Simulated scan of single mutants.
Amino acid sequence: MFESFPVLNDHNLPYPDTVHPIVVHFVIAMVLFAFVCDVIGYFTGKYRLFEVSWWNLFFATISIFVAIIFGQFEAGLAEPYDAVESVLNFHTLLGWSLSGILASITAWRYVIRSRTPHKVPFSYLTLGLILTLLVGVQVYLGDKLVWVYGLHTVPVIEALKEGLLQ
């Protein structure tokens, strides 16, 4: 039965390298850029930036679900050892939460865009700042998973196979 499954490489993946970080960096950039465009548009009156912000949020909302799908798949293949489990679980929980928060903010942004395309309320900017801070926490957790705990890195995969990590 297992012969039909693809062989895992040195990174414990069926494809050359992790896809989740690639997609998620796209999401991070779009969310942060959308917030910056809204803030600049709010304070300068350059309302065309609101349209840029909207489209960035729209595509970020779609992309976050793609990032989550790959993140869940790759986390399952990572064989997390005891020390990493709590960080990975929190990263997963926050990622799913951010998808709902981002989708809600994007829906609200669509309503704002439909009703008053040349301005955004200050309360929306406040929520954008909170979203930006949450994204920052998520980036910190993701960085910790790779740079501290070494998920999907060859030395950690080899240590797991040799039974050195539990």
Rank of each mutant, 00 (worst) to 15 (best):
M1N: 14
F2C: 04
E3T: 14
S4C: 10
F5L: 14
P6A: 09
V7K: 11
N9F: 02
N9H: 02
D10A: 08
N12L: 06
Y15I: 06
P16H: 07
P16C: 00
H20E: 03
V27F: 11
I28N: 01
A29H: 11
A29E: 08
A29S: 15
M30I: 07
V31D: 07
L32N: 12
V36A: 11
V36N: 01
V36Q: 03
G41N: 10
G41D: 04
G41M: 08
Y42F: 15
F43D: 07
F43V: 12
F43P: 08
T44A: 13
T44S: 15
G45M: 01
K46R: 14
Y47V: 04
Y47H: 12
F50A: 01
E51M: 10
V52M: 10
V52N: 11
W54S: 13
W54R: 15
W55G: 02
N56V: 02
F59A: 08
I64D: 05
F65K: 08
I68F: 02
F70D: 00
F70V: 05
F70S: 06
F70R: 06
F73C: 05
A75T: 01
E79I: 08
E79Q: 14
P80L: 07
Y81W: 07
D82A: 10
A83V: 09
V84S: 12
V87R: 02
N89Q: 14
F90L: 15
F90P: 09
T92Y: 03
T92K: 11
G95D: 05
S97T: 13
L98A: 09
I101L: 13
A107L: 10
A107M: 05
Y110Q: 10
V111L: 13
P117I: 02
P121I: 05
P121A: 01
F122M: 13
Y124N: 14
L125A: 11
L125P: 04
T126F: 13
L127S: 05
L127D: 01
L129T: 14
I130A: 07
I130D: 04
I130Q: 00
L134E: 00
V135R: 00
G136M: 06
V137K: 02
V139W: 10
V139D: 03
Y140P: 01
D143C: 09
D143G: 15
W147E: 13
V148N: 11
V148R: 06
H152I: 04
V154R: 10
V156L: 11
I157S: 06
I157D: 01
I157W: 00
L160H: 10
E162G: 05
G163Q: 04
G163L: 00
G163A: 06
L165A: 04
L165H: 08
Q166L: 09
